[in-house]
């Protein structure tokens, strides 16, 4: 563990908690892409299958359990409890395409052709693009509530911090997993224009309204 990965995990945890608080307090999931949340749930499910077979640390296990529980809770809130507030007509990104491409890529490009490794690789590729339905929804509605932009900032920062973690691990431990690194760079890159808008607008108290 290093400070970059710890801050990254805390940023990821914060994002998930911010989203749950936003939906629970406002009793509404308006502006939230249910499709992105479904993809994140698939990412955690496929990546954390080794939860009970491969013990790494108490921290690792508790975080995995929390991420799994919170992502299922989030899709429950969106598609069941507050489904009347879900903007289905704005959440129209073809996310099936993201799943199919990730499956094909995972079958073609992986470290080892085994079930757990393919599922892990699939979760890495899927996570890189899982935010696209959410970003697409924001461009469609042209704006985002400030709490949603805080959620996105925390979520986008987490994988950016993981890139620093991978640089650290490369130089200190000589460890490099280029599948995770390249996917992490793509994932963080997708947030670039959002980060620009967040820093130039939201940080100054303005709302995140995309130029029409």
């Amino acid at each position: 563990m290093n400070v970059f990965r710890l801050i990254g995990d805390m940023s990821h945890l914060a994002a998930i908690i911010i989203l749950l608080i936003k939906i629970w307090r406002s009793r509404s999931c308006s502006g939230i892409s249910g499709k992105s949340q479904l993809l994140f749930t698939a990412v955690f499910t496929c990546r954390y299958l080794d939860l009970f077979t491969n013990f790494v640390s108490i921290y690792n296990t508790t975080m995995k359990i929390f991420f799994l529980a919170s992502s299922y809770a989030t899709i429950y809130l969106i598609f069941m409890k507050f489904k009347a507030t879900y903007n289905r007509n704005h959440d129209t990104f073809r996310f099936e395409l993201l799943i199919v491409v990730s499956v094909i890529l995972a079958l073609l490009i992986n470290h080892e052709f085994s079930a757990t490794e393919i599922l892990w690789t699939f979760s890495i590729y899927l996570e890189a693009v899982a935010i696209l339905p959410q970003l697409f929804m924001i461009t469609k509605t042209g704006e985002a509530e400030s709490i949603t932009s805080h959620y996105l900032f925390a979520l986008g920062s987490y994988r950016g911090l993981y890139i620093l973690n991978w640089i650290y691990r490369y130089y200190v431990e000589g460890h490099l997993d280029w599948i995770a690194v390249l996917s992490g760079i793509v994932q963080t890159g997708l947030y670039c224009d959002f980060f620009y808008l967040y820093i130039t607008r939201v940080m100054k108290g303005k709302n995140l309204t995309l130029p029409a």
Binding site: H12, V56, S57, F67, H111, E117, W120, H175, D177
Partner: peptide, 10 residues
């Protein structure tokens, strides 16, 4: 190989 090591990350 490289795939075991990365599995200590979330």
């Amino acid at each position: 190989s490289s795939n075991e090591v990365a599995k200590d990350e979330l």
